[in-house]
């Protein structure tokens, strides 16, 4: 099976609340996929379900053919999930470098290579995580995920709440990761016109269900679809 990630008939939520229903999609190795949708449609719930911090009611999630359902978040991380949570959640009481080395696993992504992608982190390597700006925290959150040498990056709104110039810096780093390094990624984004050009495929969520799935380029060209599900008009 060539699929890196296969989500089939996933129903998941929190406590008794079902947020996601009948979510089915596949991601190939080296592929980047955008996850779009308005606020509160369940994008974070989808990412968190893969990570293993939500309640799964039904369905299956496999990573490289291995069923994740019975596994703890620790075990899933060990199989190669690199999570960049929406809240970033970097370790504030650890230095920048310690944030990376505390979770590092052997592989191609060394601390120096991560500093190559995010030179700002190198400048601030000795600073406490809590002392970083929002943009730097986001870079650190991505760097920390890379330090685990994942097979799949799960990015939850990496540009949210950042100044435009920082957004550009982050996106160009992302492009490098996806294109040059061939990193597989699931990227939740509010800015469809920013993320569609750098991903191969996209899916749109609406009230916990997938309402559209297809090539990013086609979606980018389909103004009516974007308008209908995301309320964006092409700039």
């Amino acid at each position: 099976m060539a699929d890196l990630l296969a989500v089939t008939g996933l129903r998941a939520g929190y406590g008794r609340a079902v947020v996601l229903s009948d979510v089915t999609f596949r991601l190939e190795a080296g592929e980047a996929m955008a996850v779009l949708g308005r606020n509160g449609v369940g994008k974070t719930t989808l990412i968190d379900s893969i990570v293993g911090v939500t309640r799964r009611f039904d369905g299956s999630i496999t990573l490289a053919g291995r069923e994740l359902a019975p596994l703890s978040p620790e075990e899933r991380a060990g199989l190669g999930l690199g999570w960049v949570p929406q809240e970033r959640n970097i370790f504030r009481s650890l230095t920048v470098e310690e944030n990376l080395t505390a979770v590092a696993r052997p592989g191609a992504w060394t601390v120096d290579r991560i500093y190559g992608v995010f030179p700002r982190l190198k400048e601030r390597r000795g600073n406490m995580g809590g002392a970083l700006s929002g943009g730097e925290q986001q870079m650190l959150a991505i760097g920390r995920a890379l330090a685990t040498n994942p097979r799949l990056l799960l990015l939850d709104e990496p540009t949210e709440g950042l100044a435009p110039i920082i957004v550009e810096e982050l996106l160009s780093a992302l492009v490098r990761l996806l294109r040059a390094e061939g990193m597989a990624a699931l990227i939740v984004e509010q800015h469809a016109h920013k993320i569609l050009p750098i991903t191969r495929r996209a899916l749109i969520l609406e009230r916990g269900r997938i309402v559209h799935q297809g090539a990013s380029a086609e979606l980018l060209a389909d103004a009516s679809l974007l308008e209908r599900f995301l309320g964006v008009t092409r700039r």
Partner: peptide, 26 residues
């Protein structure tokens, strides 16, 4: 606590055990 994998993992988990777990810290 500062230099070893175990020590840093402990400090990370002390701050946020759930997040640390999601990065494989047992």
């Amino acid at each position: 606590l500062r230099k070893t994998y175990v020590g840093k993992g402990l400090r990370a988990a002390a701050e946020d055990a759930d997040i640390a777990a999601a990065y494989g810290v047992d």
